[in-house]
Simulated assay, not measured.
Amino acid sequence: MPTLFLDPGRLRTELALEVATPVADELGGFTQSWAETGIVFAHVEPVSARSRPGADQMLETMTHRITLRHRAGVASGMRFRKGPRIFAIATVHDPDESGRYLVCTTREEGR
Rank of each mutant, 00 (worst) to 15 (best):
M1G: 15
M1Q: 13
P2F: 12
L4P: 00
F5H: 12
L6S: 01
L6K: 03
D7A: 11
D7R: 08
D7C: 10
D7P: 05
P8W: 04
R10Q: 15
R10M: 10
L11V: 03
L11M: 06
R12W: 03
E14I: 04
A16W: 11
L17I: 14
L17C: 12
E18M: 15
E18Q: 15
V19G: 00
A20R: 08
V23G: 00
D25L: 05
D25I: 03
E26P: 06
L27H: 14
L27T: 15
G28T: 06
T31Q: 02
T31L: 12
T31N: 07
Q32H: 00
S33R: 09
S33D: 11
S33A: 15
W34R: 10
W34N: 08
A35H: 13
E36M: 11
V40E: 08
V40F: 14
V40C: 07
A42I: 04
A42Q: 03
A42Y: 02
V44Q: 00
E45G: 00
E45M: 00
E45I: 01
E45F: 00
P46G: 07
V47Q: 02
V47P: 03
A49W: 04
A49N: 05
R50V: 09
S51Y: 07
R52G: 13
P53G: 08
P53H: 09
G54K: 05
A55I: 09
D56K: 06
Q57V: 09
Q57E: 15
M58C: 08
M58G: 12
M58D: 15
E60I: 12
T61H: 03
M62K: 11
M62Y: 06
T63V: 01
T63G: 01
T63W: 07
T63Y: 07
H64V: 02
R65W: 07
T67G: 05
L68W: 01
L68N: 01
L68Y: 01
L68C: 01
R69A: 12
H70F: 11
H70P: 00
R71P: 14
R71C: 11
A72M: 13
A72G: 13
G73N: 01
V74M: 03
A75E: 12
A75C: 13
G77Q: 10
R79W: 06
F80K: 14
G83N: 06
G83D: 08
P84H: 01
P84M: 00
A88F: 11
A90W: 07
T91V: 11
T91L: 14
V92F: 04
D94N: 15
P95K: 09
E97Q: 05
S98R: 06
G99D: 01
R100G: 02
Y101A: 05
Y101T: 07
L102M: 04
T105E: 04
R107D: 06
E108A: 05
E108C: 05
E109A: 15
G110Q: 10
R111P: 15
